[in-house]
Amino acid sequence: MTVAKLFRHETILAILTVIAMIVLASLSDKFFTLDNLLNQGRLMAEVGLISLAMTFVIVTGGIDLSVGSILGLTAILLGVFWHNVGLPLPAAILLAMVCGTFAGWVNGLIITRFSVPPLIATLATLALYRGLAEGISEARSVRGYPEWFFFFGQGEVLGVPFQLWVMGIATLIAAAILGLTPFGRATYAIGANEVAARFSGIRVDATKLWIYTASGFCAALAAVIFVSRVTTTRSDMGTGLELDAITAVVLGGTSIFGGRGTIIGTALGLILIQALKNGLALSGVKGDGTIVVIGLVLIGAILVGALFDRNRGG
């Protein structure tokens, strides 16, 4: 596959994003202001971090439906460790993130060791992790975090929201790993043909285990930022986030069958979705109307992708 082909979808997507931005800017004069764009970046970071790991997951031909629940569980544990157990907040944050990462590792273990299809494994843990969050919290929220904690979700560095920096750096790291390293090539190889990858000496199970663990870690990191941004923990946090992440990844040109996809595509997908959400809201479409648009965009994007594949004779 040549570079030109690989970038075709991304190019179309970039043009689409620019068109969407121009249209949205003409619909509302508030859209194309620095304040609004930075604020949208703030809102994008949580889904964004999860989408980066989700890109790896989907490139291997897998899926992770449990990320929203891992986010909720991590958020609840953070609150419980700090408020109920009485740990110092930094320790509570670290410990909660370890638990979230562990939850991702458990997904990987179920998928690799027991050969459970990822869709089913993570559907089960979606229920399990959310259930643990609900059971542990008993629907009570934790508030009253110290002021310094709000930096992660509300602070700025050099005028840019803190989490946008995190998101930017994470995007670069993810793009480098997927595009330039043997690990990235193994990820593509597994998605293209798992059996062939195994026979070529690629450590398929270890690679997948790393990827699902990373997915848990990203969800846990997003949880900390989320809690810091909204200043409270609730057990229903992150519900449905997996759909947003999968939409961004698939919209970004990653094949749901695995083997194909890029981090740049995912980043563009994220920006397009966030721009649509924000722009439509500013032009007076109510919040729930935008969900419809995103559903339509998702199906439309995959439909177009499937037609392209067919024309290529694939």
Binding site: L119, I291, V292, I302
Partner: peptide, 27 residues
């Protein structure tokens, strides 16, 4: 029909349908 003829996995089509139905209902 979408699932059968476009070979898009049913999970993706129904995820999109979930957004459409849910958003449509609430709005």
């Amino acid at each position: 029909t979408l699932v059968a003829y476009t070979r898009i996995p049913s999970i993706v089509v129904t995820l999109g349908m979930l957004s459409i139905l849910k958003g449509g209902l609430i709005s």
